[in-house]
Simulated scan of single mutants.
Amino acid sequence: MTEPTTSTASAISQMLNSKTVPVHFSGKKMEYLKLWLINLLLSIITLGIYSAWAKVRNTQYLYGHTQIDGHRFSFLAKPLQILIGRILAVVIFAVYAVISGLNPLLSLLCTLLLLAATPWLINASLRFSMRNTSYRNVRFSFKGSYGGAFVTFLLLPILGAITAWLAMPWVLKKMHQYLYRNIRYGGRPVQLSTSTSYYYKASIIALIIAAVILGAGYLFIEASNLIYQLQNGRWSLPALMPMFLAFYLITFNLVAGLFYALMFNHLTNAMKIDQIASLRARLSIPAYCWLNLSNSLLLIFTIGLAFPITQIRKNALLANATEVTLQPGIEQLINTEQDDGKAFGEEAAGVFDIDLSLT
């Protein structure tokens, strides 16, 4: 009988000693709403100064209520470093706005400088967020390069546009690969094996659903208009405007929810850290579509004050749909990253409306 090779034996050992556990989110809607509203009030009273502390407290709440195998995530950023970064970002934005308004040539120059700075801002923002996130006392990190971000977020979208958006699913795949493959946990890289065909399939499904809903909405509105004309002898745009807006809201949220759910499942199932962990997601598409639509309605009818409730609802649904297989190698990981205290990149990215989410 042939003896197993060392690599095979190691793989078998990893499999036998691994364990699959759910992601548990314990945040409560009213508890987080109270914290968020207090932080908002203090930020207003202090003319925005407290907003740095508010950001840390809000993020620590969400991270601290997310557990895997009994271990909570931690957000380690310090409010003062965020405040300093935010002040620098606002000052630079004010200078940018003033110079841009002087004459068209200077405005063009400032725009080109902002475009040139965009890859750095993206990397700096992600580097700060990852470095200040830890699990089991081991920090994450982000190792993206300026050239990689420049190609991925500036050049590839141009390719998508000049191909009449036909290349955009592939461009989105490249963006996801750049974002996730540059993440490290304890120095170990995240591996992501995504499929180009899946991105096209998800895009086609989303387009078909959008066409069906909009088509049905158009027919319904035309029928309603015809009935109204027969009864009143005239066509009434004001009566139909709420229907147009309602169908747009429903279509946008259902299609966006569908596409997000498809991408979440695909990305999560394609992600692992070799000998450390792998992930599995079974996010229900109807459940997430309803969450997306109902969260939008909550935000509309509460003028945005329900935002913390929508965060809790989303985090809970995503956590319940996700499980993690932990391997013995996670026990041997040590922290390889230290806090560099630089929050300017993340705050500048926010001020200049350059924001990327990993979820």
Rank of each mutant, 00 (worst) to 15 (best):
S195Q: 11
I213G: 02
N132V: 08
S134Q: 05
K201N: 14
R181C: 14
I209R: 00
A206P: 01
L230K: 09
F142N: 00
S129T: 01
A167W: 12
N123D: 15
V171E: 06
V171A: 10
W120D: 04
G147L: 11
Y185D: 06
L214S: 11
M175V: 11
L172A: 15
R184D: 13
M168G: 00
Y198E: 02
I208S: 12
A149N: 06
R127C: 09
Y218T: 15
A164H: 10
T111G: 10
Y178T: 07
S203H: 03
I208K: 14
I205T: 08
A211H: 07
T111S: 15
N132C: 06
I122Y: 03
F150L: 12
F220P: 12
M175S: 02
L230C: 04
K201S: 14
Y146D: 07
Y180T: 11
C110S: 10
H176D: 09
S195I: 07
R184E: 15
N137G: 14
A117T: 00
L114Y: 04
L112S: 04
R139V: 08
Q229R: 06
L156R: 00
A223G: 11
L159C: 10
G144W: 03
E222L: 11
M168S: 09
Y178I: 10
G144P: 09
C110F: 08
K173V: 02
A116L: 08
E222A: 09
I205A: 15
A124Y: 01
H176R: 07
I213A: 00
M130A: 08
I209E: 00
R139L: 09
P169H: 02
A116T: 03
L219C: 12
K174A: 12
K174F: 15
E222Q: 09
T152S: 15
Y218F: 15
F153H: 00
L207H: 06
S224H: 10
F153T: 00
V151W: 02
I122R: 04
L113M: 13
Y180S: 15
R188P: 07
A216N: 06
W165T: 01
N182I: 01
R188T: 08
R127M: 05
Y178W: 03
N132Q: 05
L230P: 13
R188C: 14
L121M: 06
H176P: 00
T163R: 08
A216R: 09
Q191K: 10
G147T: 01
G187P: 08
L114G: 10
F140T: 04
L121W: 05
T196I: 12
N132E: 11
T163K: 14
Q231D: 07
A167R: 01
T118G: 08
S145Q: 05
L214C: 12
W120Y: 11
R188S: 11
T152C: 15
L230A: 11
I213T: 01
F220C: 14
A149Y: 12
H176L: 07
